[in-house]
Design a binder for these strands. Structure first.
Length: 574
DNA sequence: GCCGTTTTCGGCCCGACTGTTTTCAGTCG
């Protein structure tokens, strides 16, 4: 049984216990579920290797939950869970995913109307039965119907890369408003998560009514859920929910800290404050009624005895402890990347010529790019064979000469995105690969091999003495395609052993490697490259998302090879 | 049910908004 399934069951148990109005246990199960969801290793493997004790060592898992996990791993099911489901036969995860529907309402709806799932709920709402229940009303009924509709049409989250330009537009518009003293985007966007659920905007102002008026009159607004002087919630036309909070300037830092999250980070921080007889809320850090800090985030963290961890790593996974010991990692800076090691051109499936790509890269501040068109077995892109590759090498030599004459300080390096065949061999001859500056290798077919076969295949490719970088190592497309089944631990091990670089693909649809694997690779001493995988001259700004991904994986400048000038970068390759 | 540089027992984040039960419970973030 996979971690994903185990954590889902633990979450569900938490929800059942919540509906049954049992105290504190729901959060214990939720915590354990979260912990397991974010484990790098499979619980089944942990159990196999270290037994019951090792499972109990997982944070948030004690004797009781460890026993349940043991039963799940051993038998594939859990009697306790089955019993809960029988005692309250409702699709609890389904119902609680509806906006406005919580444990209390689920219980009421089941007791009065025998509502078991979304379809029952929709029927009950449409026939006006919900409004008849004491404590509920017409508006609740409407809200439920709206919630169901939303869940059906756009239940998923938004890709950060697709939403960020629009968000910055709104941010700048607010910044230019004279009633606005300070503005910031908080939440998952500030943490630069791969996908975001909603938009949290924070404003410091002495005239909140004016700010709210302006906000709800913006052209992007589709619907206003609620409007207050401190908090307004809206739905944007693109389907994104947005919250605007207005706070006094003296509380701006506290609010920014609070709304940036994530939730676990904040809970741990508040408990820490409590232990020092302080109270932390979105208005500040307090000793009794005395405001200790609140104007800036920095002064809040400082008053708690630490530097502020970068938002990207605020996940309560060691950053607070590191900060308390003054050992926060110096993670890579957003301007730290000097070159792009995966760039496509119109020689295959890119839109622009080599020269156009080079000039566009230079405009965004890069010092060099590697041209990495596809190779011959990727027929749909018109992949290059040995002969064409040699021709491209000659073309790049010419362009570099041209740049030199023009006194342009920019270097185009020669490379390829070489296709890994089913058996792990490469589709370009070694003697031609040897003439390239950078050889990227990648899987583009046979995604459905068994874990063992897929891992062996990729490991074999990595062992090729010309294979410098493994591009988009797990092949996932966020919200579209799951990663292929591969043992990433083994890939990391092989990377270390062979000196193969692992890529952090910055394309917002890929962001591959994932943050947890980046952290793992970094701590194993494996070097990484952040590449845009650009197929057009307009895609170099993807670098930001790649850097964000690397930051979330605690990667430092030194861990990323293309933070170096190109000559030094090349020295780190095989 | 979990956890501990206050604790192996006694705690568990906390404030805003809505709807409805006119003084507050439920939900959310």
């Amino acid at each position: 049984m996979k971690n994903e399934e185990i954590s889902k069951i633990l979450y569900e148990i938490g929800e059942y216990l919540g509906v049954k109005e049992i105290q504190f246990k729901p959060r214990a199960y939720e915590k354990a579920g979260y912990s397991i969801e974010n484990l790098e290793e499979e619980v089944s493997e942990i159990y196999e290797k270290g037994g019951f004790k090792a499972v109990e060592d997982i944070p948030g898992v004690g004797v009781s939950i460890a026993k349940k996990i043991e039963e799940l791993v051993k038998t594939g099911h859990l009697k306790y869970y089955e019993k809960l489901k029988k005692s309250l036969p409702v699709k609890i995860d389904e119902l609680s995913s509806i906006e406005g529907v919580g444990p209390k309402m689920i219980l009421k709806l089941y007791k009065k109307l025998k509502v078991k799932d979304i379809n029952d709920l929709e029927k009950a709402a449409k026939t006006g039965k919900i409004a008849e229940i004491a404590g509920l009303g017409k508006k609740t009924e409407e809200k439920i119907l709206k919630g169901i509709e939303f869940l059906r049409q756009s239940g998923n989250r938004f890709l950060l890369g697709l939403i960020l330009p629009r968000v910055r537009l709104i941010e700048n518009r607010l910044r230019n408003l004279k009633e606005v003293d300070r503005v910031a985007i908080a939440g998952s966007i500030r943490r630069m998560q791969e996908t975001i659920g909603d938009l949290d905007i924070l404003v410091a102002s002495k005239k909140p009514e004016k700010v709210m008026d302006f906000f709800i009159s913006m052209p992007e607004i589709a619907h206003v859920y609620s409007r207050g002087d401190t908090k307004t919630m809206v739905r944007l036309k693109n389907g994104l929910d947005a919250d605007l909070r207005v706070v006094p300037d003296r509380s701006f830092g506290a609010a920014l800290q609070y709304f940036t999250g994530d939730k676990r980070h904040n809970i741990t921080l508040r408990i820490l404050a409590g232990k020092r007889e302080l109270k932390l809320n979105e208005y500040g850090l307090w000793r009794g009624k005395k405001l200790i800090a609140g104007r800036t985030e920095e002064e809040i963290y400082e008053s708690l005895g630490m530097a502020a961890p970068p938002p990207e790593i605020r996940t309560d996974s060691g950053e607070i402890q590191a900060a308390l010991k003054n050992k926060l990692p110096q993670i890579i800076d957003y301007r730290g990347v000097k070159g792009d090691l995966q760039v496509m051109t119109n020689w295959t499936d890119g839109e622009n010529s080599i020269e156009e790509m080079a000039l566009a890269a230079q405009e965004t501040g890069l010092e060099y790019i590697v041209i990495t068109d596809h190779t011959k077995s990727l027929a749909m892109t018109g992949g290059l064979d040995e002969k064409k590759l040699l021709k491209q090498i000659a073309e790049i030599d010419k362009l570099n000469l041209k740049f030199k004459i023009k006194n342009l300080k920019f270097r185009i390096l020669k490379g390829a995105e070489v296709n890994i065949l089913k058996d792990g061999s490469l589709d370009i001859k070694d003697e031609v690969l040897a003439r390239l500056d950078v050889v990227g290798v990648a899987v583009h077919s046979h995604f459905n091999l068994s874990r063992n076969e897929q891992t062996k295949r990729i490991v074999k490719a990595m062992r090729n003495k010309n294979a410098d970088i493994l591009f988009h190592p797990t092949g996932r497309l966020i919200q579209k395609r799951a990663p292929y089944d591969v043992d990433v631990e083994e890939i990391i091990k092989t990377a270390k052993e062979t000196g193969t670089i692992l890529e952090v693909d910055a394309d917002p649809h890929r962001l591959d490697l994932k943050d947890e694997y980046i952290r793992k690779a970094v701590s194993a001493g494996v070097k990484l490259a952040i590449d845009t995988d650009a197929h057009s001259k307009n895609s170099f700004h993807y670098l930001e998302f790649g850097v964000a991904q690397a930051r979330r994986g605690w990667a430092k400048k030194d861990d990323i090879i293309n933070t170096r000038p190109w000559r030094e970068m090349l020295k780190l390759l095989k």
